[in-house]
Design a protein around this nucleic acid. Structure first.
Length: 424
DNA sequence: TCTGGGGTCCTAGGACCC
DNA sequence: TCTGGGGTCCTAGGACCC
């Protein structure tokens, strides 16, 4: 029988902030989304005082201040680097590792000597000692059960951070304990509907008829059902999987009305998207641009639109991609609206080496010898820092840049912001 | 009382995830 | 004044073709 572990960092972003500020141990911490918009991570202490996940910062500000909560703007340079450290430790001890998100990984523990539970406890202690990030470990015969085991390990203090379904004397008790909405793959909509039918926990869901679940929740719901019964339906993917779409978008720090600003932002986002594209050795055949006004501003005129621009030849050439995106943006832009957000998406991705090339009708800006140029740009930016080499279309006005007023130092990725330790 | 029957491809929208 | 960003998969329905 296969055995999977899910290793999940506890309150990851909050834990990253704390790792470099030991004085924050035991203190309530929240981390905000881009633009200091809403709360996206909370330490346990912040959860205890009622800081709501996803709550808009300006609405919670009073509550946070009254309870002495430390507030951080998001610092993705720090979180990305800390994530890489955690994953390196896990990979060292788990040959089969699937990195699932910035703060989670599945490990294949099938046949691990000495028992999965003991292995999980050693893993947890090692990650914490080497990185300063606390983790929880859940173990089960399927990914869905490993997820549930992890949830149980986190919420039940007597588990001390590790729970193993495969050796549990009464696994059904855990399934009965788990609320239906806490099951991986069952979101708010399905949870609400199931509760209304009297299905309130994972055990009751597991007993439903296959046909009913498939009909009402599609094949994905059926997979969840079968995984709860112990039949693996989700593949285990070691090694990176190329993305099928790449998105780059941001909300603006202030409302934007001018086309010039939107074109600048479009170029900037496309530059980021194209970097991601080349990093996974892909080229894109479609560019999509979108923009919208602030949907929360009731009574203000609203407008949103998107346009997809097919490319004659799939490419990873930033100026070509920028040109396509900007042409779309010019067509969907309307005067007299206050825009809140825009973005670009790359799709129709193909491997760079397998791409079809017509020598007869290559567009002038996509000659094959563009690739060395883009490689050089990427190398310089990697070596010397983002935007060492940039594209003029990205502009220099940056009227639209986002707010990040409470960002912590980038302790691990920028020399000037290294942590200073004084020995006295 | 009735509008042919399939097949394929594409897109929009829903639902979910972190 | 102030409400994130980046993904996946599935299905229904329209366009188009024979």
């Amino acid at each position: 029988m296969p055995q999977y572990a899910l290793i999940d960092c506890n309150n990851f972003y909050a834990s990253c902030e704390r790792a470099f500020r030991p004085g924050l141990k035991g203190r309530p911490i929240v981390v905000l989304s881009n633009n200091d918009g809403c709360i996206i991570a909370r330490s346990n202490e912040a959860k205890a005082v009622g800081a709501p996940m996803g709550g808009p910062y300006f609405k919670c500000r009073g509550l946070l201040e009254r309870n002495g909560v430390e507030v951080f703007s998001s610092n993705y340079a720090l979180y990305g680097d800390m994530s890489a450290r955690v994953m390196r430790v896990l990979a060292r001890f788990c040959p089969g590792l699937e990195i699932y998100s910035i703060d989670e990984a599945f490990a294949d523990l099938t046949g691990v000597p000495g028992g999965a539970d003991a292995f999980g406890r050693r893993l947890k202690a090692t990650v914490e000692a080497w990185t300063g990030i606390p983790v929880s470990v859940g173990i089960g015969p399927t990914k869905t059960l490993a997820k549930l085991a992890n949830h149980f390990a986190k919420k039940q203090p007597r588990c001390r951070g590790v729970f193993d379904f495969t050796t549990s004397p009464d696994p059904d008790r855990v399934l009965r304990w788990a609320e239906i909405g806490d099951v991986w793959g069952i979101g708010p909509r399905h949870a609400k509907r199931l509760r209304k039918m009297g299905v309130a926990n994972a055990l009751e869901f597991r007993e439903l008829k296959r046909d009913w679940v498939k009909k009402k929740m599609t094949i994905t719901g059926l997979h969840t059902l079968l995984e709860l019964r112990g039949w693996p339906c989700h593949d285990f993917a070691t090694g990176p999987v190329g993305k099928k779409t790449i998105v780059s978008s941001r909300s603006f720090g202030r409302p934007v009305t001018e086309l010039d600003d939107l074109l600048e932002a479009t170029a900037q986002y496309m530059t980021r998207a194209a970097e991601k594209l080349r990093r996974q050795n892909s080229v894109a055949s479609h560019v999509m641009v979108f923009l919208h006004t602030n949907k929360f501003k009731l009574g203000h005129p609203q407008y949103s639109n998107a346009e997809s621009v097919p490319l004659p030849v799939a490419t990873g050439h930033t100026p070509t991609l920028i040109k396509a995106a900007q042409s779309g943006m010019k067509r969907i832009y309307r005067e007299d609206y206050a825009f809140k957000k825009c973005g670009v998406m790359l799709s129709g991705l193909e491997p760079v080496n397998g791409r079809w090339l017509s020598l007869l009708d290559l567009p002038p800006d996509d000659r094959p010898d563009d690739r060395p140029l883009m490689q050089a740009v990427d190398t310089l930016n990697k070596r010397w820092g983002r935007d060492t080499v940039a594209f003029a279309a990205s502009g220099i006005k940056r009227n639209w840049k986002m707010k990040r007023e409470m960002r912590s130092p980038r302790y691990t990725t920028v020399w000037e912001e290294l942590l200073t330790v004084r020995a006295e």
